[in-house]
Design a protein around this nucleic acid. Structure first.
Length: 476
DNA sequence: TGAAATGTTGGGGCG
DNA sequence: ACGCCCCAACATTTC
């Protein structure tokens, strides 16, 4: 009788297009799918609150799907390496398979596990699949990793012929008897007292099935992607980010689905794929520069004169800056665990430039509140907006929340949805309530400083201060 | 995937 | 009819 294999699941919470399951099926090996909640205290980037909510539901759905074929998802908590090597010996497994991660801590675990397994003559094998290309395989002519997005993505597009193709759902055989498993309910991933997850439940259905459903109608939604994705009141973006982060769907499936849409709208397809390209770029960057979440990629930024301002930070976090577009975004984030991409850029730019608050503090807030919180994307995104990242926006590129609002939410549909205090304000004052005549404010039922904040700072002054700060440190 | 400052142009009002 | 000014509209430069 063949020995079983353990499939160690992490950010690949799906059954379809899964190289580890695929190989197990090809070798007709029985499988034990296992998820380990690693709660060791030295782990720096444990999942945030919103991520834990998503994780819970993804695990539940995966377990449900496995139970339909006579299996279970085996849940364990502790040090992944100890747990997995013990489990492998216990069930006399021939191998442990996993999908390679890009997060530094997760990669360290892979290495430790490989060594631990070797001691007992058990195979440990990692597979590609979290990204379109394995990090390290995309290099510039000098053999180094790319530091600029456009040539990086160009190279990826050239290499698409050699990428791994999506596979279907393998026919799995489950190993019996099922090993002991923790109870998901005991992991405490869901918020209680208070249960703040109502908005998340209303906005999302985590898991492979729902991810696949989103993907299936991507072709219809993508037609106007290029023209509408910047308008936060239109639901024109893909909303795939959390599914991709947790691997509810694979990046390959997403890429191939958009390819099917190509005949309908070439421009939209290319710009959607370009967004997948940014995810790819961030993943490769984190792989090569493991300090990306902690330290500025451009090391001279270490000397940047950031400010500590807990009061302003709190106002930003809670959506009380007095700038409608930013407040709408931050409240959308708080309620749904997600924020429209355009608004993320504006809100982030405001924090690091107008307020001069370190990007790491914004990153930490997003990490805790986003259902799509992803170490690579989050770090790369914040560094990009702060101007200290690879291929970053120049420091002097400062978003003006008023102009961005007028441009991308001209009728304030988005603002009104998340900042209902402003519902009665006429369009022309929606993004600048502080310059509305008293009489107009009165009619709209708004008292600035009372039921809607006065602006946290003067935009022109904030902009000037940011440019001065940049010039000062840049001259050194 | 910016915004503000500065420069240029051209139409219309007007003496 | 002409020159002058104003200023919107657009283009370019600068931060």
């Amino acid at each position: 009788m063949k020995k079983p294999v353990i499939v160690w699941m992490r950010q690949d919470l799906r059954l379809s297009d899964h190289p580890a399951f695929e190989l197990a099926a090809t070798l007709s090996k029985k499988v034990v799918p296992c998820y380990v909640l690693d709660s060791r205290s030295e782990k720096k980037w444990a999942p945030g609150s919103a991520s834990r909510w998503w994780l819970h539901h993804s695990l539940m759905e995966l377990d449900q799907r496995l139970s339909e074929i006579g299996g279970r998802l085996i849940l364990k908590s502790g040090d992944s390496v100890k747990i997995l090597s013990a489990l492998a010996r216990q069930i006399n497994a021939s191998a442990v398979y996993w999908l390679n991660a890009v997060e530094p801590d997760a990669r360290k675990d892979e290495l430790r596990l490989r060594i631990a397994l070797e001691k007992h003559g058990i195979e440990g094998q990692g597979f590609g699949g979290y990204l379109l290309f394995e990090p390290g395989t995309i290099k510039n002519l000098g053999g180094s990793p790319f530091r600029v997005f456009t040539p990086f993505w160009k190279k990826c597009l050239q290499n698409m012929g050699q990428r791994r193709l999506a596979s279907g759902t393998a026919t799995l055989e489950i190993h019996h008897p099922l090993p002991d498993s923790d109870l998901l309910a005991n992991w405490g991933l869901l918020p209680i007292k208070p249960d703040w997850s109502k908005g998340l439940r209303k906005s999302w259905q985590p898991g492979e099935q729902y991810g696949q459903a989103l993907l299936a109608n991507l072709m219809n939604r993508i037609t106007h992607y290029d023209t509408e994705r910047n308008f936060p009141d239109k639901n024109a973006t893909s909303h795939l980010s959390p599914y991709l982060h947790f691997g509810n769907i694979s990046i390959t499936q997403a890429f191939e689905a958009s390819g099917l849409a190509e005949q309908h709208s070439n421009k939209s397809t290319l710009s959607f794929q370009r967004e997948l390209g940014w995810r790819e770029f961030s993943g490769h960057l984190l792989f090569h520069f493991t300090e990306l979440p902690e330290k500025p990629f451009r090391t001279n930024f270490t000397a940047f004169p950031w400010r500590e301002d807990p009061v302003a930070l709190r106002a930003w976090q809670t959506g009380k800056t007095g700038f409608p577009l930013i407040d709408a975004g931050m409240r959308q984030l708080w309620h749904t665990g997600w924020m429209h991409n355009r608004v993320r850029m504006v809100a982030a730019s405001f924090l690091v430039k107008h307020l001069l608050i370190p990007w790491q503090q914004g990153q930490a807030w997003f990490w805790d509140t986003l259902v799509d919180a992803d170490l690579a994307n989050n770090a790369a995104g914040w560094q990009w907006i702060a101007g200290c990242g690879a291929d970053a926006a120049p420091y002097f590129r400062i978003f003006n929340p008023v102009l961005q609002g007028q441009k991308f939410d001209p009728h304030g549909t988005y603002v009104k949805r998340w900042v209902p205090e402003l519902t009665k304000l006429p369009d022309c004052y929606l993004h600048t309530p502080w310059i509305a005549p008293t009489e107009v404010l009165q009619r709209a039922g708004i008292t600035l400083g009372s039921n809607y904040p006065t602006p946290l700072i003067d935009l022109a002054e904030g902009r000037k201060r940011a440019l001065t700060a940049f010039n000062q440190f840049n001259q050194r």
